[in-house]
Design a protein around this nucleic acid. Structure first.
Length: 386
RNA sequence: GGUGGGGUACUCAAGUGGUCAACGAGGGCAGACUGUAAAUCUGCUGGCUAACGCCUCCGAAGGUUCGAGUCCUUCCCCCACCA
């Protein structure tokens, strides 16, 4: 345990254990709100809340860092309000690290409501149609106002498939915006990460990564993945990006939430992930377990008195049955989605804790093989139950 | 006893001669979801079939018609009002 006097400055990234047979490593990234043990999974809290969870639920379930979103928070309640309320941490009552996305993903997901221009993106609010502009300066100013620990550069996230010309233009824009983001003022101790784009084109990924490194950031993300491409393409894109990023800096793959894909990424040297999967799937009735997922809403669980995941120590699994949670979900009771969210987040956190322990013990490859085997077995069994 | 209204699939509820195995909603079932416009969305939901398709079906029984959920007759049941 590090004492306060010796707390390293934000941005310090300690690599604790490097795996001998892969790129996997465990590390500790220091932020203004404390350290983050990596590899880490960051639940998504777009609008200043990880949907259905209280900050103490996050803490109790081992969450270290969460996401917030520039686009959504600038629309509602507006940065000035968050700022006036003491910044995002105080506003939402979360004392741990927060990473804010720049709105770059909304360039992709709100495609029909925006226009990408050289200097930034013109959005039309999905709420009331109001037009506004988000450029590098705006994105950084908002993230500064929110007071996040890690700010992301504004990037252009093109869809898949994407022709080389379009991908190249997205890279150019992303790079020029990154250079501008780097120059903006930051909140005290705030880190800034650059984002590698380039679609499925390795040379573009490489160029983007190298130029970002030349600009110099506290960490680097691989973006524009899991936007519809097949898994082999996705994994290649990640590898193509990560391999040109400095070993000494944290690497983050944006939007990845599949266990197998994340393990493969860790093997490539990735340290950070975020995804809506555990939380959104919970709200839609799907439970995650270490070795697969299953729809709790399915009729086959109506009399199942076992916990969602046997052996799980989360509050939902300690106190409630699949049958009960299924019932809650089917009648639309809010507690159902909350309990399942608690479980899914707990499951993700446990999975990463296990993975970190395996890497630290020098057993990553063994652990990885066992994980793959169990997962395969589970697939064969047909569902997550047993 | 009289008058009026009504009985349609798991439920509610459209449909008044063929385009009806039957609108719609709910429920049920299945699937999807990867930097959250998502407690959302999609599909199926009479039986048999992998499918083409076949069979049964709109309170019951008869009838009219080339053809009836729809028209006619009788019967059964429900509701409202009047006695």
């Amino acid at each position: 345990m590090t004492t306060p006097q010796t707390t390293p400055p934000p941005g310090t990234f300690e690599i604790l254990h490097a795996d001998a047979s892969s790129g996997a490593r465990t590390g500790r990234l220091w932020t203004a709100h404390g350290p983050i043990e990596t590899p880490v999974f960051m639940p998504v809290g777009t609008q200043g809340t990880v949907k259905t969870l209280e900050p103490r639920d996050l803490t109790e379930n081992g969450v270290q860092v969460i996401l917030g979103n520039t686009y959504h928070l600038m629309l509602r309640p507006g940065v000035s309000i968050v700022e006036a309320c003491g910044g995002l941490h105080r506003f939402m009552g979360w004392g741990g690290p927060i990473l804010t996305d720049s709105g770059g993903f909304q360039v992709f997901s709100l495609a029909n409501l925006r226009k990408v221009r050289p200097g930034g993106v013109e959005f039309q609010s999905h709420i009331d149609g109001t037009k506004f502009f988000l450029g590098p300066a705006e994105a950084m100013a908002i993230q500064r106002g929110l007071g996040s620990d890690i700010a992301m550069c504004l990037d252009e996230c093109p869809p898949y498939p994407c022709d080389p010309q379009t991908a190249c233009q997205a890279v150019d824009k992303t790079l020029s915006w990154a250079a501008l983001c780097k120059r903006q003022a930051r909140a005290p101790g705030q880190l800034v990460f650059g984002i590698v784009q380039g679609g499925e084109y390795a040379p573009l990924r490489e160029r983007c990564a190298r130029e970002l490194v030349a600009i110099g950031f506290d960490g680097y993300a691989v973006g524009g993945v899991s936007v519809g491409e097949p898994e082999p393409v996705l994994l290649r894109e990640i590898d193509d990006g990560v391999r040109h990023l400095p070993v000494a800096r944290p690497r983050y793959v944006m939007g990845l939430g599949d266990f197998g894909q994340m393990v493969a990424s860790v093997a490539c040297g990735v340290d950070m992930f975020d995804c809506v999967m555990p939380t959104r799937h919970a709200r839609n009735g799907t439970a995650f377990t270490r070795h697969g997922s299953f729809p709790v809403k399915a009729g086959e669980y109506k009399l199942d008195t076992r916990p969602v995941e046997e052996g799980c120590g989360c509050y939902a699994c300690r106190h409630f049955s699949r049958a009960y949670i299924r019932h809650l979900l089917n009648v639309g009771e809010i507690l159902g989605v909350r309990l399942l969210t608690i479980h899914n987040v707990h499951c993700y956190m446990g999975f990463f804790r296990e993975m970190r322990a395996a890497i630290a013990a020098g057993a990553f490859e063994t652990w990885r093989r066992e994980f793959a085997a169990k997962r395969q077995e589970q697939r064969g069994a047909g569902s997550g139950e047993s």
